[in-house]
Amino acid sequence: MLIDLPGCALCAADRDRLAHPFVGGVVLFARNWRDRTQLTALCADIKSVRNDLLICVDHEGGRVQRFASDGFTPLPPMRVLGQRWEVDPNAGAALATACGFVMATELRACGVDLSFAPVLDLDYGASTVIGDRAFHANANTVTALASALMHGMQLGGMANCGKHFPGHGHVRGDSHTEVPVDSRTLEQILEQDAQPYGHLCLRLQSVMPAHVVYPAVDGVPAGFSARWLQGILRERLCFGGAIFSDDLSMVGARVVAGQPIGVGRAAELAWKAGCDMVLLCNPATSQDFDACLVALERSCSQATPQRKQDSEARRHSLLPIAPALGWDALQSDGRYVHACKTVARVQIRV
């Protein structure tokens, strides 16, 4: 389970939760941010509880960038990269690589391990929750730009996470507040939205499914569907990395087959469908935390030893394998300086 934190520093209850063997990491939000010094201290404190905890954040750029002051470079929305690609594909790819490198190196300099990026949804112009977070409407363009962004992240020592499988861009509904339904056929989805996952399957290190129902394929949201996660993502598209659930506190994760379910049941369904890690974030109460733990302990006790070992190995594979440059050293790193200039020039033109 990946959990959230209420503030900018750990309290005794936070430490107890992080020490639990069924907790594998933390998801940070803007409420956990005051400045770089505080963020760096918080990440170090989390690692002091358990060094293998995975520290994650949504830091895509544009309107989804949790840390955007005190020296952090403002990253453009991914749609800007798509617009740049239309003018000059090489320049668009270079900008994507620069964004990925800046994102990864700045976060890692403060102790963050993973940003949930890139967004692989297609920009149909329908979804307000995705909108300019998507690179483009064309699947091939999304694949090319995502590949370049992932390369930049890799150069910065960070793994990647493609989201929201198999695609959230076609529906208007926001899974934070409702249960979106995409009525297209499996063939239509595979030929369009899921294409980037097939093309990038050997390079994607983790994937986050959508809290969207695709009734032509399965009657439950993709994150609870063994057909989507195991039959299609793992077997048909040959994805071998880690699978995160999206936040189980979202409305899209709390209604299955038209019936409301508790967070414990949601965690159980996500694990049984094939998720390696489940996210429990906004807002998570002590009762929700306990319910998730009980459900996961029960589910894991029924799983094979191999399944548990594989999931834990995939979680560990997302941890950085090399030390990061500190913030001061980063400012004089030639690649970082060049990447920041690339990002700044394009933003000024836009």
Results as ranks from 00 to 15, higher is better:
310 D>Q: 14
256 V>Q: 07
269 L>G: 07
189 I>V: 14
170 H>K: 13
47 K>P: 10
126 A>L: 07
297 E>C: 14
333 D>Q: 11
244 F>Y: 08
67 F>H: 06
340 C>G: 05
196 P>K: 03
144 A>V: 01
267 A>P: 07
290 D>T: 14
38 Q>R: 12
275 C>L: 11
110 C>N: 14
34 R>D: 08
246 D>A: 08
66 R>E: 02
53 L>S: 02
191 E>C: 06
308 K>I: 14
218 D>Y: 07
283 P>I: 06
94 A>V: 04
74 P>R: 07
105 T>L: 07
331 Q>Y: 13
189 I>P: 05
103 M>K: 04
130 I>S: 03
195 Q>W: 15
151 H>A: 13
111 G>E: 10
277 M>S: 06
197 Y>D: 00
226 A>Y: 07
311 S>E: 14
211 H>T: 02
101 F>P: 02
9 A>D: 00
290 D>G: 09
183 S>C: 03
17 R>M: 12
312 E>M: 14
286 S>E: 15
223 G>S: 13
149 L>N: 01
107 L>H: 11
21 P>Q: 12
196 P>C: 04
53 L>W: 11
235 E>W: 00
264 G>C: 02
228 W>M: 09
15 R>A: 10
292 C>H: 03
30 A>S: 15
29 F>P: 05
30 A>L: 02
47 K>R: 15
273 A>C: 04
182 D>T: 10
326 G>V: 05
85 W>C: 03
64 V>W: 12
342 T>I: 14
278 V>I: 13
349 R>Q: 14
225 S>G: 13
209 P>Q: 00
302 Q>I: 01
